[in-house]
Amino acid sequence: MFKRLAEKGPAIAITVDGRKVTARVGDTVAAALLAAGIDHCRTTPVTGAPRAPYCLMGVCFDCLVTVDGVGSRQGCLIPVREGMKVETQLGRREAGR
């Protein structure tokens, strides 16, 4: 869906569901997922439908993921950090828990 204009800037290693993903300085969690071709990050609590980041500006909450054990974080607002553990999540309703 997206490619990087230039593979510049220091690489940052994170894991997504245990898989190694190389992100870049300046990436948010959602951007790193999109750049790695991961096109869904959660399923909905009501029907279990897959969702991916939609707005990348903090309004839609479709980018909710678990970051370092904390569930339902807005991936598009959180900068990546070396060693960060990101998990896609299933159907949780409450944000920020």
Partner: peptide
């Protein structure tokens, strides 16, 4: 709501902030 559908603003944000095209 399908993955792969995003806002234009989202693509623009990814371009400005992360250099993703």
């Amino acid at each position: 709501t399908l993955p792969g559908v995003m806002t234009a603003g989202a693509a623009q944000t990814a371009l400005k902030a992360q250099g993703l095209v």
